[in-house]
C-alpha cells in the first residue's frame, strides 16, 4: 500500500527540500520504490538538490495538462534505481494546478511506488493546499527559532483542519552546543510548544551544504550526522523502532566546568 507523505513547514528556508531529497534517498537505499514530487510550482529546486537538474524534459504541469504521460516526466536517479523525481514547472505558477489535479496525480503515482514524497512550497496558501491535497501523512519541518516554530504551529492547525491526521515533526538544524548553553531551544522545548509527535532531530551539519553543492545528499555521505539522522527518520517511517540520535558536542569535564563558570568552552568537532 503506497503512502503519500507531504513535507511542509510554513516558514521558508527551514529545510523542506533538503529533507525531501534526503528522506527519498534514504528510503530508496532501504529498497523502497520512491518518487519525490516537487510541488513548488514556479520555484523548482528539488531537482538541483538531488543533482538531477540536467535531465528534465517534462514537468508536473505538463503531466496535469496532458502534454505528456506521467512516466515520461519521471526522472530516474541513476545512483539509486528505486528513486525518481517528478520536477516542478519553472515557468508557471501555483494556479496552474488545482488540489483535485494533485489528488489525481498522487493516486496515479500510488500505483507505481511505495512512497510518494511531496515537497511543499512555503506559506499557507494555494501551493501549500495543493501539496497536502493528496497526502496520507504530513511531516512538518521546523528549526528551533521563534519564527519557524510559530509558523509550524499554524501549519499544525491547518493540517488538522484539512483532516490529514496528526502531522509529525522534524526538528532541523539543532546545534547541541548552543542547546547545552541554553542559547537554543531544545527538542523538548519545541515538542512541548507544538504538542505533536517528533519523528526526528537533524543536527546542523556542514555536510548538508557541501553535499548539496555537488548535487548529492547527506545520507550518501558516511560520517554525516545529518545524514544519519535522515536515515533514522526513514527507518522510523518504515515502522522500525530507532532510538533518537543523542547529539553530542563532546564536552569534556573541564569544558562543562568552564561552561558553568560562564566561560566559553573549547569546541571539539567530530
Amino acid at each position: 500500500m503506497a503512502r503519500v507523505i507531504t513535507i511542509t513547514s510554513g516558514k521558508g528556508g527551514v529545510g523542506k527540500t533538503t529533507t525531501t531529497a534526503n528522506l527519498g534517498t534514504a528510503l530508496a537505499m532501504q529498497g523502497q520504490r520512491v518518487v519525490a514530487v516537487d510541488a513548488d510550482i514556479g520555484l523548482r529546486n528539488l531537482d538541483v538538490v538531488m543533482g538531477l537538474e540536467n535531465r528534465i524534459v517534462y514537468d508536473l504541469v505538463d503531466v496535469v495538462e496532458g502534454r505528456c504521460r506521467l512516466r515520461q516526466a519521471l526522472i530516474k536517479d541513476k545512483r539509486f534505481p528505486e528513486l525518481f523525481l517528478l520536477p516542478a514547472a519553472q515557468t508557471r505558477d501555483k494556479d496552474a494546478v488545482s488540489p483535485e489535479d494533485m489528488i489525481e496525480l498522487c493516486n496515479s503515482l500510488r500505483r507505481e511506488f511505495d512512497f510518494v514524497l511531496v515537497d511543499s512550497p512555503a506559506g499557507i496558501e494555494g501551493g501549500f493546499r495543493n501539496a497536502i491535497a493528496g497526502a496520507d501523512e504530513v511531516l512538518i519541518v521546523t528549526t528551533p527559532e521563534v519564527s519557524a516554530v510559530r509558523d509550524a504551529d499554524r501549519i499544525v492547525g491547518l493540517v488538522e483542519a484539512f483532516e490529514k491526521g496528526h502531522p509529525r515533526l522534524i526538528l532541523n538544524r539543532i546545534r547541541p552546543q548552543m542547546v547545552n548553553r541554553g542559547e537554543m531551544m531544545s527538542k523538548e522545548d519545541v515538542v512541548e510548544i507544538l504538542a505533536i509527535d517528533l519523528i526526528g532531530v537533524v543536527p546542523d551539519d556542514e555536510v548538508i551544504v557541501t553535499s548539496t553543492n555537488r548535487g548529492e545528499v547527506a545520507v550518501m555521505q558516511k560520517g554525516s550526522q545529518a545524514g544519519r539522522a535522515y536515515t533514522d527518520i526513514a527507518r522510523r517511517l518504515l515502522g522500525e523502532d530507532v532510538p533518537m540520535l543523542v547529539l553530542t558536542d563532546d564536552q569534556s569535564l573541564l569544558d562543562k566546568f568552564m561552561g558553568a563558570l560562564g566561560l566559553r568552552p573549547r569546541r571539539t568537532v567530530r
Binding site: E145, V146, V149, R150, D153, V179, R181, G182, E183, M184, M185, S186, D189, I193
Partner: peptide, 15 residues
C-alpha cells in the same frame, strides 16, 4: 534566564 527560555516564553505567549 537564558535566551532559549526567553524564546520559549515569548512563543508560548504569542501562540
Amino acid at each position: 534566564e537564558t535566551s532559549s527560555t526567553i524564546a520559549k516564553e515569548r512563543l508560548l505567549t504569542v501562540l
